[in-house]
Design a protein around this nucleic acid. Structure first.
Lengths: 342, 342
DNA sequence: CTGAAAGCGCTTACAG
DNA sequence: CTGAAAGCGCTTACAG
């Protein structure tokens, strides 16, 4: 590969001049600029981004670590939509994404630290949101620019920038809808109980029942870890409650909602005549499931795009002005919900 | 950030010694190694990957450019599964992925060249497979290590490494199944006609009909560009063929198969009683569609993982031993296919 | 507008 | 086993 010096020699200028030409520096005469470009073209020269990064201490790269991958992580629309949002926004701003995997939650912190400590990225978008993993605290220690997708695990992180969906509100709306339809025995099928989003939805679930004066029952809560079988198992368990069996289910993703529907059908329950189901994420499967699943649409791509934009601003300002964005979700009504038949 | 020199000073050794310790060099006495690690820990030192890359001319990073994104790119399982395979394989081998977007097919080549010319990656996995875009030729010019997902666009690229599914065989099997079920009027709904995979499937479609002595009809071929509406439109068009209307459809992805089913239902055709449908990719939606779609399962994650492994081998050997891998697909029979009712 | 030089933070042949 | 030095390919204050 040709270097800046090869070009300099050929164009009869100093290498610093070549550098200036390629960094878009204005104080270059038109004639030398042309000579340099001509020489570069002839040699097939393109500036080495690594060398530039070492010099400027900037990579124009954003790091992400794909968190510990649960069953169905790549089946749900959660990950692909986040990816799309980040890709689009970073592309638009001339950034690339550097993405690493990890084996488990501890490893996630390691990987993030590595990527930052080794200066491979100018900042990082963090998607983890498990309460027991203090990624955020670690990141803060190293004054790494970062933005959370999801909000910080506790109040003590006031200065952190994040984007999130309004999960509380969305869950509340879903629950209220079910209540309006006459349901009072409503199940909550959450994901990983350590997942912050899942916890929030559970909290909103309990709160909404309470506000409506509907007694809650611990038997109506199941943690399905975001996979299809989790939803299926929830029903298998709750169907044994006899009289006390739920007549409606709210699930924290559509995969679990699909599992719920599969189990209900297997037990000869009709949806929505006997039981109503609401899922979350508006995944492709929700539209195709039979019956089509009513679901909470979460604007993941938009959230992720916003996170990237906030991060880039942080990086370019050198400042960490804290800011947060909350996105509204939207209830998408389809065929899995109906008035409770008395 | 602490540098190797800070650590050296603190540990009372030369910086080259610190470097050796962190590069896992064996010829280091146990006592100095310990001193160095202690000093590093105290200073929170982690080697700067950018500087190392500049020195070693290796980044341990693999580049990918997300090709021009068609509608549904992130809905189908194609992209997420490729991503999963690449992520897992690169993680296992201590590599990361650097991923960029692009605006269109020309831009794709630009982006790939940029990533390589600027030395941000040691090699690249190329997913584009449009006949009219000569990514491959460009890449070869720059003797960049790369592996194709999909095979080269023409015979003249003998020395290129690639992985691919056996699309011909898979399509043939799907078609033969339909023929065995008594169908003779079989439609082919392809993706982008410039997409190589789509072309291959179309070729296999025609060939299989011919071998079975079944006359083909140009009206039975439609290019749906891999999206749901494309499938829907195929039916809307073909349903006007009257007598000559197809009794079976093979679609190059499940999204289009779902569109086909939607259109058939709208036109009061029963599936599979009146019309059979086979999709491709075994996407999540295929299982949930009503009826559940019989589909060709393509091992994208495995293919992508293999591509990454081949690429890493190329990178580490410094050699470009050409090799190719073809993966078998699997017909997943569900409820959208049945014997033709006379 | 352009050149000469120092520096970004590592690695690695060369000595010893 | 360890040190001293050159080099990877850029950028950027400092002069002029």
């Amino acid at each position: 590969m040709a270097t800046i010096r090869d070009v300099a020699k050929k164009a009869n200028v100093h290498s610093s001049t070549v550098s200036r030409v390629f960094s878009g520096n204005l104080s270059i005469s038109e004639t030398t600029r042309e000579r340099v470009f001509a020489a570069a073209k002839e040699l097939g020269f393109w500036p080495n981004a690594i060398a530039r990064s070492l010099s400027t201490q900037r990579t124009n790269t954003i790091g992400i670590i794909i968190p510990y991958i649960f069953e169905g992580f790549f089946n749900d629309s959660f990950f692909p939509q986040l990816m799309r949002g980040m890709l689009e926004a970073s592309y638009t701003h001339g950034f690339r994404l550097i993405v690493g995997g990890c084996e488990n939650y501890d490893d996630e912190i390691d990987q993030i630290q590595q990527i930052m400590a080794s200066s491979q990225a100018d900042g990082i978008v963090v998607m983890s949101s498990r309460m027991d993993v203090n990624t955020v605290g670690e990141l803060q220690k190293h004054n790494t620019p970062f933005v959370l997708i999801g909000h910080p695990p506790s109040e003590k992180y006031q200065e952190i920038s994040w984007v999130d969906a309004d999960n509380q509100k969305a869950t509340k709306e879903a629950l209220q809808l079910l209540i309006e339809l006459g349901h009072t025995k409503i199940a909550f099928v959450g994901g990983d109980p350590k997942n912050l989003t899942s916890q929030e939805r559970e909290k909103a679930y309990l709160l909404t029942l309470e506000e409506a004066g509907i007694p809650a029952d611990a038997n109506w809560i199941h943690h399905g870890f975001f996979d299809e079988t989790g939803g299926y198992n929830a029903v298998e368990r709750m169907i044994q409650l006899g009289e006390n069996m739920p007549t409606a289910y709210y699930a924290a993703n559509d995969l679990m909602a699909a599992g719920i529907i599969r189990a209900l059908k297997k037990n000869n329950m009709r949806i929505p005549e006997d039981v109503s189901v609401i899922g979350t994420n508006n995944s492709p499967i929700a539209a195709y499931c039979q019956p089509a699943i009513s679901t909470v649409s979460v604007p993941y791509a938009k959230m992720a795009g916003k996170a990237v934009e906030m991060l880039i601003e942080q990086i370019e300002q050198g400042e960490m002005e804290q800011s947060t964005f909350t996105f509204d979700c939207k209830l998408v009504m389809r065929d899995s919900t109906a008035k409770l038949h008395p």
